[in-house]
Simulated scan of single mutants.
Amino acid sequence: MIQNGHWKYFFKSLIVLLFLVSFTSVMAQQDAQFTQYMYNGMYYNPAFAGKDGGFRFSALHRSQWANYSTSSGQGGAPTTQLLTAQGRLDSKNIGYGLTLVNDQIGASSNLEVNLQGSYHRKFNRATISFGASVGIFSSSLDYGELVVVNPEPNLPTAGKESQMNLNFSAGLLFDRGNYYIGLSSRHLNQPDFDFGDGSYANQLKNHSYLLFGYRFRPVGQLAIEPSFLIKSVSFNNFSYDVSVIATHANKISGGLAYRGEESISFILGYSILRDNSLKLGYAFDLVVSGASAKAPTSHELMLRYTLSDISRQVERVIQRTPRFRF
């Protein structure tokens, strides 16, 4: 049962943070966004890699602003795929992971592959984790799909160009059991992409994330986890996601989420296998702000699989012979 003091403290903190965020303008975020962020902490923060032990895999597909088309009649709705894999060396308290992100939006597409490493250290009932990642970020631009209001003379009108750069991230995570807080920063080196003989420059800005969640069981096998994610681009502007997820018997889950100045979301989850190792998740977003510039709905489908550590114990069987018993 959750303590009243802790519950009141959580909501006071949440109200203050949302109040501060609501007075900041929102800068266009270059990173992909996910409604089911609470299940994909490793994407935002490499300190999550291997935190829970076992081997874990996930696959997610997001179709944002379904059937969106530009004023010129072209498509361009963002679609994103996210693949993650993680494990842990328990004897060394070291976690490792791999994330792969394919993000398509209009004339541009981005492929991001990151190798992650983390270290987990227990202090009493808490775990402190440190993580870092290194990878590549590949950006492509299809000039034939590009609509430019004031085109530069050297900007091609057809063909496709791709560029690749190194990409670094780092993060911290504190997990007390009933609550957790993580702070991370992606694209620390802010890689540059310069297309069309310098006519079209695009720098990948540093993105920082603050993720906070609270876990409690009000009754029986019902678990509830409110959480919020604060996102910053170059520490100049902020946006946020907030959600509440209820799970019964680790089998079926449902909840609501809100993305600041954009959408409300409905999230459902169900464990398919008897041991709850395979989980299916679905999120539906409904745009409530700026609807005139977007299509009204987004969809997100996710699969998660957990392969727990298996320890085989050989039981000694009593065998009897005419003379010996062992």
Rank of each mutant, 00 (worst) to 15 (best):
G5Y: 13
W7T: 08
F10Q: 01
F19R: 05
S22M: 09
M27D: 14
Q29R: 15
T35K: 04
Y39A: 09
Y43A: 03
P46D: 05
D52P: 03
F57E: 08
A59H: 02
H61E: 00
Q64F: 01
A66F: 14
T80E: 04
L82V: 02
A85E: 08
A85Q: 06
D90Y: 02
N93V: 01
Q104P: 05
S109I: 08
S118A: 05
Y119M: 02
I128G: 14
S129H: 11
S129A: 15
A132K: 04
S133V: 02
G135E: 00
F137Q: 11
S139P: 03
E145M: 13
P153D: 08
L155P: 13
E161M: 06
M164G: 08
N165E: 11
L166S: 11
S169E: 07
A170I: 00
G171V: 01
L188C: 10
D192R: 07
F193N: 01
D194E: 14
G196L: 11
N202E: 12
K205Y: 06
H207I: 02
S208Q: 14
G220I: 08
A223I: 02
E225M: 06
E225C: 02
E225S: 07
F235T: 02
Y240L: 13
T247D: 10
A249N: 15
I252N: 04
E261N: 15
S263N: 04
L268W: 14
D275I: 00
V287G: 10
S289N: 05
E300H: 00
L303V: 12
L307P: 12
R312K: 14
V314C: 03
R316G: 10
P322T: 10
